[in-house]
Computed example of a mutant assay.
Amino acid sequence: MATWNLAARSIGSAVVAGLGFLRTSLAWGTRRKRRQDVLLALLRQLEVMTEEIHRANLIQQYRLTVDQMNRTIDDPSLADASSTLTDLTEGKRRQLLFANRQYGSLLLAHRIGACGWDELLGHLRVLCRNAVFAEYWDRTAEHRRSIPADSVEAQVGAAVDIMMEELAEDPEEWWIVGPSATGEPPA
Score class of each variant (00 low, 15 high):
Met1Lys: 09
Met1Glu: 11
Thr3Glu: 06
Trp4Ser: 03
Trp4Tyr: 06
Ala7Met: 12
Ala8Pro: 15
Ser10Arg: 09
Ile11Ala: 14
Gly12Lys: 05
Gly12Arg: 11
Gly12Asn: 03
Ala14Asp: 01
Ala14Ile: 15
Val15Ser: 00
Val16Ser: 04
Ala17Glu: 00
Gly20Ser: 09
Phe21Arg: 00
Phe21Tyr: 12
Ser25Asp: 04
Thr30Pro: 00
Thr30Gln: 06
Arg31Ala: 12
Arg34Ser: 13
Arg34His: 07
Arg35Pro: 14
Asp37Cys: 00
Leu40Tyr: 11
Leu42Pro: 01
Leu43Met: 11
Thr50Asn: 01
Glu52His: 05
His54Ala: 03
His54Arg: 11
His54Thr: 04
Arg55Asn: 10
Gln60Arg: 13
Gln60Gly: 10
Gln61Phe: 14
Gln61Asp: 00
Asp67Thr: 14
Gln68Asp: 10
Arg71Trp: 03
Arg71His: 07
Asp75Ser: 05
Asp75Pro: 09
Asp80Cys: 02
Ala81Ile: 15
Thr84Glu: 06
Leu85Ala: 14
Leu88Val: 15
Gly91Phe: 14
Lys92Pro: 02
Arg94Thr: 12
Arg94Asn: 04
Gln95Gly: 10
Leu96Glu: 10
Leu96Val: 15
Leu96His: 08
Ala99Trp: 12
Ala99Asn: 10
Arg101Asn: 13
Arg101Ile: 10
Ser105His: 09
Leu108His: 01
Leu108Gly: 05
Leu108Tyr: 02
Ala109Tyr: 06
Ala109Cys: 02
Ala109Lys: 06
Arg111Thr: 08
Ile112Gly: 04
Gly113Phe: 01
Ala114Gln: 03
Glu119Ser: 07
Leu121Trp: 01
Arg125Ile: 05
Val126Thr: 13
Val132Tyr: 06
Phe133Cys: 02
Glu135Gln: 13
Tyr136Thr: 06
Asp138Gly: 09
Asp138Cys: 06
Arg139Pro: 11
Glu142Ala: 00
Ser146Arg: 14
Ser146Leu: 07
Ile147Pro: 00
Ile147Gly: 00
Pro148Tyr: 06
Ala149Met: 07
Asp150Trp: 04
Asp150Ser: 05
Asp150Leu: 02
Ala159Glu: 00
Asp161Glu: 08
Asp161Met: 03
Asp161Ile: 09
Met163Leu: 13
Met163Gly: 00
Leu167Met: 14
Leu167Val: 12
Glu169Arg: 01
Glu169Phe: 03
Asp170Tyr: 05
Glu172Thr: 15
Glu173Ile: 11
Trp175Cys: 01
Ile176Trp: 02
Ala181Lys: 04
Ala181Cys: 04
Thr182Met: 07
Gly183Ile: 10
Gly183Glu: 07
Gly183Phe: 05
Pro186Met: 00
Pro186His: 01
